[in-house]
Amino acid sequence: MPTQEHSRTAVVIEDDDDVRDLLHTVLTGSGFRVHTAPAGLAGVEMVRQLAPDVVTLDVGLTDIDGFEVATRIRRFSSTLIVMLTARTDPADEERGLDAGADRYLRKPFRAAELRRHIAEGLAAHA
């Protein structure tokens, strides 16, 4: 009987092409099957269809902001949400966590830092 490797799934919701490509590379290198969405509404639908293990979510999206995306995802999913943003105001972090994000990571971030946040978050979800 053939063995099937269980592959974890990630959805990246990010409107910046370069950041989206970086996240794709980091997550693929960490063993995830990665799907990307350049906007919030498309990302919500992707999460609904794929039921990923983790979602990385930009706050500043072109259609609806990341806070609204997190709120919508939480209506149907308990997936790990790592919010990524350049915003430094502590009120934004509180708003992100209140909207449903599990982790809040400020840009610029290091790949190792993102991997650590994801590993810790997934362990806490287990």
Rank of each mutant, 00 (worst) to 15 (best):
M1N: 12
P2N: 15
T3Q: 14
Q4P: 04
H6D: 13
H6S: 14
H6N: 14
R8D: 03
A10I: 04
E14V: 05
D17W: 09
D17M: 12
D18H: 10
D18C: 03
V19D: 13
V19P: 10
D21H: 07
V26G: 06
L27T: 06
L27Q: 04
G29F: 02
G29H: 08
S30D: 15
S30T: 01
G31R: 11
F32C: 10
F32V: 05
V34Q: 11
V34P: 11
T36K: 12
A37S: 15
A37Q: 07
P38H: 05
P38C: 09
A39Y: 04
A39W: 00
G40E: 09
A42L: 13
G43Q: 09
V44E: 11
E45L: 13
M46I: 00
R48C: 03
Q49H: 09
Q49P: 02
A51K: 14
A51W: 02
A51H: 15
P52F: 03
P52T: 01
D53H: 14
L57R: 05
G60L: 13
G60P: 02
L61D: 11
T62N: 14
T62A: 14
D65S: 01
D65G: 01
G66T: 03
F67C: 00
F67M: 11
F67W: 10
V69E: 05
V69N: 07
V69F: 09
A70E: 08
A70N: 06
T71C: 02
T71H: 14
T71N: 12
T71L: 05
S77D: 07
S78N: 13
T79V: 15
T79I: 02
T79A: 14
L80F: 02
I81S: 06
M83I: 08
T85L: 09
A86Y: 11
R87S: 11
R87D: 13
R87K: 15
R87H: 14
T88C: 09
D89K: 13
P90R: 12
P90F: 10
P90M: 06
A91T: 12
A91H: 11
E94D: 13
A99E: 06
G100R: 02
A101H: 04
A101P: 09
D102S: 11
R103W: 00
Y104S: 08
Y104A: 08
R106Q: 15
R106Y: 00
R106E: 15
P108S: 10
R110I: 00
A111P: 02
A111T: 12
A112T: 12
E113V: 10
L114R: 05
H117S: 01
I118L: 02
A119I: 00
E120T: 03
G121A: 00
G121M: 00
A124I: 01
H125C: 05
A126K: 08
A126G: 12
